[in-house]
Amino acid sequence: MDVFMKGLSKAKEGVVAAAEKTKQGVAEAAGKTKEGVLYVGSKTKEGVVHGVATVAEKTKEQVTNVGGAVVTGVTAVAQKTVEGAGSIAAATGFVKKDQLGKNEEGAPQEGILEDMPVDPDNEAYEMPSEEGYQDYEPEA
């Protein structure tokens, strides 16, 4: 019985440690998101679009440190934060509304985080759909 109880105690310690790591990862992701939003706020009209992409990228980098179902929630929060940063930029006159959601080359930025393969159960990952990809044929 002692062996059984000791095993359960060790398992509990492992769960607590994993929860603490997840909590730490979420806190880091939130900190990076805040950094990115402050970065966007300090940019001029020309830099705002690039700044919004930076927020998304920093958040995406930190999301990889967070495991399990938390990833889905962090990704949703990050996307809403990026959308909010863009709205703030438009409201303050840093950028025109028609410039939001495009990178410096004018290509749409939507789907940055949505296409990231995420499995809350950590069982399997699927690649994003290939609808947006084109076949590449090298020139002879």
Rank of each mutant, 00 (worst) to 15 (best):
Val74Lys: 02
Gly93Ala: 06
Gly73Arg: 07
Met1His: 00
Val3Glu: 01
Thr54Ile: 10
Tyr136Pro: 14
Gly101Tyr: 15
Val40Gly: 01
Thr44Ser: 12
Gln134Lys: 07
Lys21Phe: 14
Lys43Cys: 14
Lys58Leu: 10
Glu13Phe: 04
Val74Phe: 13
Ser87Pro: 10
Val49Pro: 02
Tyr136Ser: 13
Lys32Gly: 01
Val40Asn: 00
Val66Trp: 14
Tyr39Asn: 03
Val66Gly: 04
Lys12Glu: 00
Tyr39Ile: 08
Met5Ile: 00
Glu104Met: 13
Lys10Glu: 01
Lys80Pro: 02
Ala11Phe: 03
Val66Cys: 08
Glu110Pro: 09
Lys43Tyr: 10
Thr75Arg: 06
Asp135Ile: 15
Gly31Leu: 11
Lys60Asp: 00
Asp115Trp: 06
Pro128Phe: 02
Thr22Val: 07
Ser87Arg: 02
Gly14His: 14
Gly51Lys: 15
Tyr133Ala: 11
Ala30Ser: 03
Asp115Ser: 10
Glu61Gly: 09
Pro108Ile: 08
Lys12Ala: 09
Ala29Ser: 02
Glu105Gly: 05
Val16Glu: 03
Ala91Val: 11
Lys12Asn: 01
Ser42Leu: 12
Met116Phe: 07
Gly41Asn: 03
Gln62Leu: 10
Gln62Tyr: 06
Lys10Arg: 13
Thr72Glu: 15
Tyr39Ala: 01
Glu61Asp: 08
Thr33Ala: 06
Val49Ile: 08
Val74Thr: 02
Val118Ser: 12
Val48Trp: 13
Gly93Trp: 13
Gly132Ala: 15
Lys102Ile: 05
Val49Asn: 03
Lys80Cys: 09
Ile112Val: 15
Glu137Met: 04
Ala76Pro: 02
Glu61Ala: 07
Tyr39Glu: 02
Val26Gln: 00
Met1Glu: 00
Ile112Phe: 05
Gly73Lys: 11
Ala30Asn: 00
Glu35Asp: 11
Val49Asp: 01
Pro108Ala: 06
Thr75Ser: 07
Leu100Gln: 10
Gln99Lys: 01
Val3His: 03
Val49Phe: 07
Val26Arg: 00
Ala78Glu: 01
Thr59Trp: 12
Thr92Gln: 04
Gly51Leu: 10
Ala17Cys: 06
Val26Ile: 12
Ala124Asp: 11
Asp98Ala: 08
Asp2Val: 00
Val49Arg: 12
Gly73Cys: 13
Val63Asp: 01
Ala17His: 11
Lys43Ala: 07
Ile112Pro: 08
Val66Arg: 06
Thr22His: 01
Leu113Asn: 01
Glu126Ser: 03
Tyr133Asp: 09
Tyr39Leu: 05
Val70Gln: 01
Lys45Phe: 08
Thr33Glu: 00
Val118Leu: 12
Thr72His: 09
Tyr39Ser: 07
Lys60Val: 10
Thr75His: 08
Asn103Trp: 11
Ala91Gln: 05
Thr22Asp: 00
Phe4Asn: 00
Glu28His: 05
Leu8Trp: 13
Gly67Pro: 01
Glu130Lys: 10
Gly86Ser: 09
Ala107Glu: 14
Gln24His: 04
Val95Leu: 14
Gly14Leu: 10
Val63Trp: 12
Gly51Ile: 13
Lys34Gly: 01
Ala90Asp: 05
Ala11Tyr: 15
Pro128Met: 09
Ala85His: 02
Gly25Ile: 09
Ala17Tyr: 14
Val48Ile: 07
Glu83His: 09
Pro128Tyr: 11
Thr33Arg: 01
Val70Met: 09
Pro138Ser: 07
Gly67Ile: 11
Gln62Met: 11
Glu130Gly: 08
Val3Cys: 02
Glu61Gln: 14
Val66His: 09
His50Arg: 09
Lys23Asp: 00
Val15Trp: 04
Val71Trp: 14
Asn65Asp: 05
Ile88Gly: 04
Glu110Asn: 14
Pro108Lys: 07
Pro108Thr: 10
Val70Arg: 02
Phe94Tyr: 11
Glu83Ile: 13
Pro117Phe: 04
Glu114Gly: 12
Ala53Phe: 15
Val63Leu: 12
Gly31His: 07
Lys10Ser: 05
Val40Phe: 15
Ala53Thr: 04
Gly7Cys: 15
Asp115Gly: 12
Gly51Val: 11
Glu46Gln: 04
Gly84Asp: 04
Glu105Cys: 02
Ser87Thr: 13
Lys60Tyr: 14
Pro128His: 10
Glu20Asn: 13
Glu61Tyr: 13
Met5Leu: 00
Thr59Val: 12
Leu8Lys: 00
Gln99Phe: 04
Gly67Thr: 12
Leu113Gln: 07
Val66Phe: 11
Glu61Arg: 11
Pro138Asn: 03
Lys6Val: 02
Asp135Ser: 03
Met127Gln: 12
Val3Asp: 01
Ala89Glu: 05
Leu38Phe: 11
Leu113Phe: 14
Glu131Gln: 12
Ala124Met: 11
Ala17Phe: 03
Gly47Tyr: 12
Ser9Arg: 08
Ala124Gly: 14
Val95Cys: 04
Lys21Thr: 09
Ala91Ile: 03
Val66Leu: 11
Gly68Glu: 06
Gln62Phe: 05
Glu110Cys: 09
Gly101Asp: 06
Val95Ala: 01
Glu105Gln: 11
Gly31Asn: 07
Ala17Trp: 11
Val118Arg: 06
Asn103Phe: 03
Lys97Leu: 14
Thr59Gly: 08
Ala29Phe: 14
Glu20Pro: 00
Ala56Met: 13
Ile112Glu: 08
Ala89Leu: 08
Ala19Leu: 15
Asn65His: 11
Glu123Leu: 15
Ser42Ala: 13
Lys45Asn: 02
Pro108Val: 09
Lys45Met: 12
Val63Asn: 01
Gly67Gln: 15
Ser42Cys: 07
Ala89Trp: 14
Gln109Pro: 12
Glu137Thr: 07
Ala107Met: 06
Gly14Trp: 04
Glu137Cys: 05
Val15Met: 11
Val70Pro: 01
Val66Pro: 01
Lys43Arg: 09
Asp121Pro: 09
Ala27Asp: 01
Gly51Thr: 13
Val82Asp: 04
Ile112Asn: 15
Ala78Ser: 07
Leu38Ala: 06
Pro128Thr: 04
Gln109Arg: 08
